[in-house]
């Protein structure tokens, strides 16, 4: 048994130096970001399951459709990847700047640049889908193509929602000002965006690089 007396009921000394018990705990924005991290983890699981499905379909799911080798080339996907990489970099500048009290204009500026590159990425992706589509390589052709469209499409949907989210944040920065709340939202979008980038690297390697080399 513990020898120390139980200080039951005595008020808790707070590590923050001020002493009150909010329902929301102390470091709210840190907590929100922590929760968002956990959410991203489960999102990552979803991506890995789709990747695993794709890996299986790539082997056994060609049916009467094209193989990855016949379908993919590296040109456009490389440009696409560069666009996303740049956008991640510019987002980094955006959030770092915000941390060091950059002006709202600067923050918004970098965010806009990020979103433009995101849109370029998305545009290329849609263009490629379109190309495949008019060649008759639709998701209905084979298990492999189903898995391909679902995986890349899911990533694309994520990027789309990231872009919409970014646009709304710009509006919120304008209307609500650079409040703590808006800043946390931007930080979360940053996490989200970086995760999408990492996922894309995996997709690029698995689908295009290894597909073309196979």
């Amino acid at each position: 048994m513990s020898a120390t007396t139980t200080n039951l009921g005595a008020h808790a000394p707070s590590d923050q130096g001020h002493d009150h018990g909010h329902a929301h705990g102390h470091d709210k924005s840190g907590t929100v970001i922590f929760g968002f991290w956990i959410f991203l983890m489960s999102d990552l699981i979803a991506f890995s399951l789709f990747i695993a499905t794709y890996a299986d379909a790539e082997w056994h799911g060609i049916a009467s459709g094209p193989s990855p080798h016949q379908l993919f080339s590296l040109g456009l996907p490389t440009v696409e990847t560069m666009a996303l990489l740049i956008s991640t970099f510019t987002f980094g500048i955006c959030t770092l700047g915000m941390k060091y009290n950059a002006t709202m204009r600067r923050t918004i500026g970098w965010l806009v640049v990020t979103l433009i590159f995101g849109a370029i990425f998305l545009g290329i992706e849609l263009y490629e889908f379109h190309e495949f589509w008019i060649e008759g390589n639709t998701p209905q052709v084979s298990g492999f193509l189903s898995a391909y469209y679902a995986l890349v499409g899911m990533h694309g949907l994520h990027v789309t929602s990231g872009i919409i989210w970014g646009l709304l944040l710009i509006v919120q920065m304008k209307t609500m000002g650079m409040t703590e709340l808006v800043k946390t939202r931007l930080m979360r979008l940053g996490l989200f965006w970086h995760m999408l980038d990492i996922v894309w690297i995996a997709l690029f390697t698995k689908i295009y690089l290894m597909g073309v080399l196979s």
């Binding site: 049916a63 459709g65 998701p139 209905q140 298990g143 898995a147 679902a150």
Partner: peptide, 14 residues
């Protein structure tokens, strides 16, 4: 509903 073939054996599903 979209005619995908994740699970249709004849079309490369599993």
């Amino acid at each position: 509903h979209a005619g995908f073939h994740f699970f249709t054996a004849t079309q490369g599903g599993n």
